[in-house]
Lab assay of single mutants.
Amino acid sequence: QSYDVTDELPLPPGWEMTFTATGQRYFLNHIEKITTWQDPRKAMNQP
């Protein structure tokens, strides 16, 4: 797995990073009650 500086940034409020039983990373948004494979920190860093 390649290193990404985004991995060091804190998640936005309400978000949690977790893993499936097979080790795949995904993200939970407790405020909007959604899950996604997309890292919400990457969207924050788009110009």
Rank of each mutant, 00 (worst) to 15 (best):
T35Y: 05
W15G: 03
W37C: 04
Q24L: 06
H30Y: 06
Y3Q: 08
A43F: 14
H30R: 11
P40M: 00
Y3M: 15
P10Y: 06
H30C: 06
T36W: 00
E16L: 06
H30A: 09
H30E: 09
D7V: 08
P40E: 02
D39Q: 00
D7A: 12
N45Q: 07
M44L: 14
M44Y: 14
W15Q: 04
D39K: 02
A43Q: 12
P40G: 00
G23K: 05
T36I: 01
R41Q: 04
R41V: 04
Q38M: 13
P12D: 03
L11S: 03
H30P: 08
Y3H: 14
P40K: 01
T18A: 14
Q46M: 10
N45G: 13
Y26M: 06
K42T: 11
L9C: 10
L28P: 02
G14P: 05
S2I: 13
N45D: 11
N29H: 07
A43K: 14
P40R: 00
R25L: 08
A21F: 04
A21H: 10
Q38C: 11
R41I: 03
Q46R: 09
E8N: 09
W37G: 04
R25Q: 10
P12I: 01
T35D: 02
L11G: 02
T6M: 14
E32T: 14
Q24K: 09
R25G: 05
D7M: 08
E8A: 13
S2D: 15
P12M: 01
I31L: 05
D4N: 15
L9K: 12
Q24N: 09
Q38E: 10
H30T: 10
H30Q: 11
R41D: 01
P40L: 00
M44E: 15
R25S: 08
M44F: 15
P10W: 05
R25W: 03
G23C: 01
Q46Y: 07
Y26R: 04
I31R: 12
T35L: 02
P40D: 00
E16F: 06
M17R: 07
T20R: 03
T18F: 10
R41T: 05
S2H: 15
N29V: 00
G23A: 02
D4L: 09
I34C: 11
R41K: 02
T22Q: 09
L11A: 02
Y26C: 03
W37H: 05
Y3P: 15
T35P: 01
Q1D: 14
K33T: 04
Q24C: 06
M17G: 05
E16G: 07
P13R: 11
D4F: 09
L9N: 14
K42H: 12
Q24H: 03
T18Y: 11
E32I: 12
V5N: 13
A43E: 14
Q1M: 15
Q38S: 10
T18P: 01
F27H: 02
Q38G: 07
R41P: 01
M17H: 05
Q46E: 15
L9R: 15
W15Y: 06
F19A: 12
K42Q: 10
T20H: 04
L11F: 11
Y3I: 15
L28E: 04
T6P: 14
N45P: 09
Q24R: 07
H30N: 11
F27E: 03
K33D: 04
I34K: 06
T20W: 00
V5D: 09
G23Y: 00
N45E: 10
K33N: 13
Q38L: 13
P47N: 01
G23Q: 04
K33G: 15
P47T: 09
L11Q: 02
G23E: 04
K33A: 08
L11T: 03
T18E: 12
V5T: 14
I34F: 14
P12K: 01
Q38K: 13
I34S: 09
F27N: 01
Q1Y: 09
I34P: 01
Y26H: 05
H30D: 07
M17C: 13
T20D: 12
T36P: 03
